[in-house]
Simulated scan of single mutants.
Amino acid sequence: MSATTVNAPVPVEKGASLWRDAAYRLAKNRAATISLVVLTIIFIACLVLPFFPSLIPDPNLQELAGKNTPPSAEHIFGTDHLGRDIFSRVLYGGRITIAVGLITTSVSVTLGVLWGAIAGYVRGYVDDFMMRIVDILYALPFLVIVILLGKTIEPWTTTLTNDTVRLIVGEGASVMDENATRTWVEPITTLVPLFIAIGALSWLTVSRIVRSQVRNVASQDFVEASRSLGLGHFTILFKHILPNSLGPIIVYTTLTIPSIMLFEATLSFLGLGVKPPNSSWGILISEGADRMSANFWLLFFPSLFFATTLFALNFLGDGLRDALDPKSSKD
């Protein structure tokens, strides 16, 4: 009786998910990786340090005896014409600029994804009607509409500020506690009109991107299989189609944040953004531009933080675009 040769089982290579492949390709992109590290440092410095007053001075504290001081050990970014510490003002201003970018982009992307997904999935007359509305809004002067809409909503911000402060500190809080809370609440609540105005009109491009992606994904075989299994339209759209369209949405989001931050800086430069004595990077750049011939540091440091953040976001967006491209190779 001949011996039977038993073949050893062939090892099966474990498949990698799209997100694991994307993370691998992103890690190999040196510019995107460095940008992510830089953004993390800037975000931590601007969003965390201002909540520890013992670490940095009050950005609105005026010391006229030390005005127009160049960078030194005591004031590493120098002081302005009122003796205020520029390092502290850059961090506090960055908190507002970053908040505008993140919150407004969230509003914009949410509206755009919902609008574009419904239009691309339903198609027909609904699609035509929804996209004609987008075309009409595209034809409107964006800057003028944002300014008018912001001014219309602005009277409500005082009530919003008072209600927010009472909600945080409670009814029996002292005046000192209320004032301390108002110091960091008011800069954010006064920007709510800006959040709404920019976010309500900056979703148009993302709606077109999502519509195109949804139309492409909806024509694939797995969507037809989902329909044949009796799944509802809501489940198919939000659990099967949109998750397969997240790549372009994520990339567009990272590229939208710097554009909105730049737009907020433009409005602040024109005096239509953050109200004094609070600051944003746009206001600091505006103030520095007026005095750059005498005190260069007033313009240099805010511009450095702002430009670095914009460059890093764009490099990260480019890296994510390449990493999430299914045609890219892992090699």
Rank of each mutant, 00 (worst) to 15 (best):
A218F: 00
L272M: 15
I153C: 05
F87C: 10
G116Y: 01
A22C: 08
G112M: 13
V38K: 00
A119I: 05
G317E: 03
P70H: 11
E224Q: 13
L47A: 10
L242I: 15
T104W: 00
L149M: 15
S212K: 04
L167Y: 09
L102D: 05
W281A: 04
S226G: 05
A45K: 01
T110P: 02
D58G: 10
A312Y: 00
A3L: 13
F315D: 02
E287N: 12
M130G: 02
P141T: 00
R84W: 07
R291L: 14
P57Y: 03
A218G: 08
W281G: 02
L298K: 00
S293L: 10
R123H: 10
G247Y: 02
S106E: 09
S72D: 10
L160E: 07
I103T: 07
I198P: 01
A323Q: 01
S108L: 05
A139W: 05
K14P: 01
W281R: 09
R95G: 01
G170W: 12
T235Q: 15
P70A: 07
P53G: 05
F305Q: 01
I133Y: 07
K275S: 11
H81P: 03
L270G: 05
T5H: 12
R166F: 12
L26D: 06
L149E: 06
F301C: 01
S303W: 02
P11K: 13
V274R: 00
L310H: 03
H75W: 07
L204P: 06
A16M: 12
K67Y: 03
T69E: 13
L82P: 09
